[in-house]
Design a protein around this nucleic acid. Structure first.
Lengths: 226, 226
DNA sequence: ACTAGCTTGCTCGAAACAAGCGAGTGGACT
DNA sequence: AGTCCACTCGCTTGTTTCGAGCAAGCTAGT
């Protein structure tokens, strides 16, 4: 159960006049509200979270979430953007300048890392993803775009792998990328529906190995632990 | 845009007194409402569908959907049950008494068949699946159970395949089943988010082939067209 | 007259918007 | 430099609209 006690509202006029710009002020309250929204989505899902609760859990009034974000949809869209920011950061930190199969493996591992450190975050993000897939709103377009970008990134790694001769020439990068992203989204989905039934980390490793067995150059097939 | 014109309400007292039992009467109105609900979910998703619209699109009053199903959740739960009924029927028609790899392939093809004939149906069903995954309701439990059953069914085919020596002894049926269902759910998800980007049928075939290449006995690997 | 399918009336609560409040800031005038 | 005023802007409160859900009522067949 989420703590519903009000937080102190953004320590205004503290001892040594903190001199915040407008942007900084709103950033604080927005941040608090996004955090509150995440907690509530985790607990109740999007339907059963109210803007009133978001505002009040963040330490403000009934109406602030509405006032700032305009609508529930936009609040959630904002949340997704924040998540994606972090995700990208985490991922690119591990992928770095790697290319090809190495980049692919790093991306795969970054999911596992991110999952271990922030499983709540991921959980909330995908609840948002999945719960909005049917609504014909602004959010749908964002999803479309982000998923497309993800598939393209994976396809690029595969293409590089072919160039580097770690992946077979006969492989179609686009199709393989679709297989990988499908597996990933579906795994997360089943994990959301029933966390106890899914062993996330080993499932990802299994799949990676199976995939490389198919698309890797024959002498690459075994090299994961390298 | 869904036609909002009222349908004639269940041709009551037509020429030759149709003599319906109570159960038959309610079955008709329930059926109409479920159909209306499906159309609305397809168009707007679950959030933006109101019980009022469901009732009125089905040719009845504001309140009937509420009155019959008790709540929005229960209406959707009912819808999912209807879908699953059809799905099972379609699937078992194609699988029949097949076992092992043959059963697996038949199940895989049944998806494609069902998809070609009823893509709206599938679309609506999965919107329901995905949009309720975050809500901690009765529906979540149903999802959990159904997904588990699906994984077990696939795992059983794999086990049979091993017994029939079409699938390698070293394969872990549970893990492979998870890979397959993950791929499938994730593919559908991406298709929901952006139907134009996903070539459903070929993606399923690709994945099937890749999977068999890994888990099939070596001389089986090529035999899909058989 | 009674049953049962359906409708209408009503309450509660959420979203969204508009108007208002009040603390802090900058500018003007001394 | 100090005082005061007007304005800005972050936040709150008042209010409307609409949906869910419930209960009471209506009416066509038996």
């Amino acid at each position: 159960m989420v703590q519903m006690r009000r937080l102190k509202p953004a320590s205004r006029a503290s001892n040594k006049a903190p001199r915040l710009t407008q942007a900084e002020r709103t950033a604080i309250s927005d941040g608090r509200m996004l955090e509150a929204a995440m907690a509530l989505v985790l607990e109740r899902g999007t339907h059963n979270t109210t803007l009133r609760e978001v505002g009040e859990l963040a330490g403000y009034s009934r109406g602030l979430a509405s006032n700032r974000f305009g609508s529930k949809d936009e609040l959630f869209a904002e949340l997704i953007d924040v998540f994606n920011e972090r995700w990208k950061k985490e991922s690119s930190a591990l992928v770095g300048s790697k290319t090809g199969l190495e980049a692919f493996d790093a991306a795969n591992e970054s999911i596992i890392d991110f999952m271990n450190d922030n499983s709540d975050y991921i959980r909330a993000m995908f609840i948002l993803y999945y719960e909005t897939v049917g609504s014909s709103t602004v959010m749908r377009e964002r999803l479309t775009e982000q998923h497309g970008a993800y598939r393209r990134a994976i396809a690029r790694y595969i293409s590089q792998g072919i160039a580097e001769q770690t992946i077979k020439r006969t492989v179609d990068p686009t199709r393989v990328a679709l297989q990988y992203t499908s597996f990933f989204f579906g795994l997360v989905y089943q994990w959301l529906a029933n966390p106890d039934a899914i062993e996330f980390e080993s499932a990802l490793h299994d799949f990676r190995d199976a995939m490389i067995q198919v698309i890797g150059e024959t002498d690459m097939a075994v090299r994961r632990s390298a």
